[in-house]
């Protein structure tokens, strides 16, 4: 029987209360949101917090709304809420698209965007999307709020820029300007649906039809979620023919440390990262 190691449970009713509990229990505490990464890890005893601070019922952190130049998403917004959001479908189709590929309906009912990003599993889907969309990640700690650009957030496998006494509370997604399309594609593990290789692509086309901006992120294949700068550089300024795209995606994981496990060798993952990157870029272009 697989059950977590014993812990004390602290349901928090507000962000301030949760931060105070984090300060009180320090390294012995973990935050629980939807629990669909943490509880499996606890059942395997990979994680054994002595104190579990449940922020799952802080309903004020669950929202999707439009501001002047941003769409903002609360940290506790579930995958299902993102998947069904017309606002997100209109502005960032890759986000509901990627979310619909997470796990299954039951997992999407519970899992949250904040939980996924704070957990930062390199095989998860949303870190790549957040990175490609250049999200501003708002976190709150004892000294108040600060904003971390997505590019600075994903430090290493399961490691982020979030301090131990901080809570991820909001994502601010800058609205796209000009002619922009976006898409997410992945090769999924058949059982878990985690990405063996995934790619989030946001492409902007200028007046002359050439690519004026590209934001490409790779998940699943590399040991941490990355921006594929070599691919972006190979796209920007060019007319995006199939040949140009094929050449660009061949650099998807250049110089990166790869995940190697029973689901795929280094060589396989590099090749699959290029395949999903090509598909994501092509689909993003179709959506412009």
């Amino acid at each position: 029987m697989s059950v977590p190691a014993a812990f004390d449970y602290h349901p928090a009713t507000s962000v301030d209360e949760a931060i105070a509990l984090l300060q009180q229990y320090g390294d012995e505490a973990k935050l629980l949101a939807g629990g669909h990464s943490l509880i499996p890890a606890m059942k395997l005893r990979l994680s054994q917090p002595e104190h579990l601070i449940d922020i799952g019922k802080i309903s004020s952190l669950s929202y999707i709304r439009e501001e002047q130049d941003h769409i903002v998403i609360g940290g506790l917004t579930t995958y299902v809420q993102i998947e069904q959001s017309d606002l997100l479908r209109k502005h960032f189709p890759l986000l509901p698209e990627a979310t619909s590929m997470v796990g299954d309906q039951q997992v999407r009912n519970r899992g949250t965007i904040g939980g996924s990003i704070a957990h930062s599993d390199p095989a998860a889907d949303l870190p790549g999307v957040v990175l490609a969309l250049k999200a501003e990640i708002v976190v709150q700690g004892p000294q108040g709020k600060r904003t971390i650009p997505a590019d600075d957030f994903f430090v290493d496998t399961f490691t982020t820029a979030l301090a131990p006494d901080e809570i991820l509370i909001e994502f601010r997604l800058p609205k796209a300007t000009g002619s922009t399309g976006s898409a997410y594609d992945k090769l999924a593990n058949k059982a878990s649906h985690y990405a063996i290789a995934g790619c989030a692509a946001v492409i902007t086309r200028g007046q002359d039809g050439s690519c004026s901006a590209a934001s490409i992120a790779i998940t699943g294949a590399t040991v941490r979620t990355i921006r594929a700068r070599a691919v972006e550089n190979a796209l920007v300024g060019k007319q995006l023919s199939e040949t140009v795209i094929a050449e660009a995606v061949s650099h998807a994981t250049d110089g990166e440390d790869m995940i190697v496990d029973i689901h795929g060798s280094e060589e396989y993952r590099r090749k699959m990262a290029a395949v999903v990157a090509r598909r994501a870029i092509m689909r993003a272009l179709e959506r412009i």
């Binding site: 629990g35 509880i39 499996p40 449940d54 799952g56 299954d104 039951q106 009912n109 878990s192």
Partner: peptide, 26 residues
């Protein structure tokens, strides 16, 4: 028991969930 097979699905507050991956206290 790893939130993949769905044998443990029940409705919680109107939504289907995998009850092997939810704590009773939740």
């Amino acid at each position: 028991n790893t939130s993949q097979c769905g044998a443990c699905v029940v409705m919680l507050n109107g939504e289907a969930i995998k009850s092997c991956t939810v704590l009773a206290v939740q």
